[in-house]
Simulated assay, not measured.
Amino acid sequence: MEVLLRATDAIKSLRETRFSGIRSPAEFFDYHRISRPADLNQATSRISYNTRYFSSNYGLIIAALAVYAVITNYLLLFSIAFLVFGFAAINKFAPEATQFGEHTVTQKHLYTALFVIGIPLLWWASPIYTVFWLIGASAVLILGHACMLEPGVESDYATISEGAV
């Protein structure tokens, strides 16, 4: 019960801190503000401003791409589920050592067996490829959006207030 309360509190604090800055889809997908930057300086300033302004939206994009990557890689999904549910099952059903004939099976033995099977299975599922795909896909989408979207009128006021401080 205590774990559930801690998880609920963590979700609430995440919602209050990280998801409070989510911009509306109308603002995020405003096609009227899309234009090609004139030069590299303008592209850099757009990226700098838009990555800060839309950081919560970009976080959601990364999370959605990560879920997509795991769901479409069935072996990776299976190996992660195997390790997580195996760990949970060992904690729940085998907290004490069990005697099988002349052999005593402890949690340490079960964890060793779980990792001897699970880690090579996880490695075979190519998680490093998935991480690099996630980094590349996120970078292309986020930098493309941030570079092509002109900052709104509020960006002019943001630079004035930064200069005044």
Score class of each variant (00 low, 15 high):
160 I>F: 08
26 A>N: 13
55 S>K: 12
36 R>E: 13
15 R>G: 05
16 E>Y: 13
18 R>F: 13
76 L>P: 00
62 I>D: 06
119 I>H: 00
164 A>C: 02
102 E>M: 10
12 K>P: 03
6 R>T: 15
135 I>P: 05
117 I>E: 00
23 R>L: 12
7 A>Q: 14
81 A>S: 15
44 T>E: 13
158 A>P: 04
145 H>N: 12
9 D>C: 08
20 S>V: 05
29 F>E: 05
57 N>V: 02
72 T>V: 12
148 M>S: 05
19 F>C: 11
139 A>P: 02
140 V>E: 01
95 P>A: 02
25 P>I: 02
33 R>E: 13
128 I>K: 12
4 L>C: 11
99 Q>E: 09
71 I>E: 14
44 T>V: 13
123 W>G: 06
165 V>R: 15
134 L>N: 00
17 T>D: 13
146 A>S: 12
51 T>S: 14
160 I>D: 09
125 A>Q: 03
23 R>I: 01
151 P>I: 03
29 F>R: 10
109 H>K: 04
38 A>S: 10
124 W>D: 00
123 W>A: 12
74 Y>L: 11
135 I>A: 09
96 E>S: 14
37 P>M: 10
130 T>K: 04
47 I>F: 05
9 D>Y: 07
37 P>L: 02
7 A>W: 12
135 I>S: 07
27 E>H: 02
90 I>S: 01
94 A>I: 05
88 A>R: 15
85 F>H: 04
79 S>I: 00
117 I>H: 01
122 L>F: 15
156 D>E: 15
20 S>N: 07
65 L>Q: 03
162 E>L: 11
57 N>K: 05
133 W>A: 13
65 L>C: 08
112 T>C: 01
133 W>K: 13
119 I>Q: 01
17 T>G: 09
129 Y>G: 07
107 Q>N: 08
66 A>T: 10
33 R>L: 09
8 T>Q: 15
70 V>R: 15
144 G>S: 04
161 S>H: 15
152 G>Y: 08
108 K>D: 01
60 L>W: 08
66 A>Q: 03
124 W>C: 01
67 V>R: 14
73 N>L: 06
22 I>G: 03
94 A>E: 00
77 L>V: 10
119 I>A: 00
157 Y>E: 15
115 F>G: 02
146 A>E: 01
121 L>R: 04
83 L>W: 00
134 L>G: 11
100 F>K: 00
5 L>V: 14
46 R>Q: 01
41 N>P: 08
41 N>V: 13
8 T>D: 09
63 A>G: 06
88 A>N: 11
140 V>D: 05
31 Y>K: 10
99 Q>G: 06
75 L>F: 11
31 Y>E: 10
53 Y>W: 05
18 R>E: 07
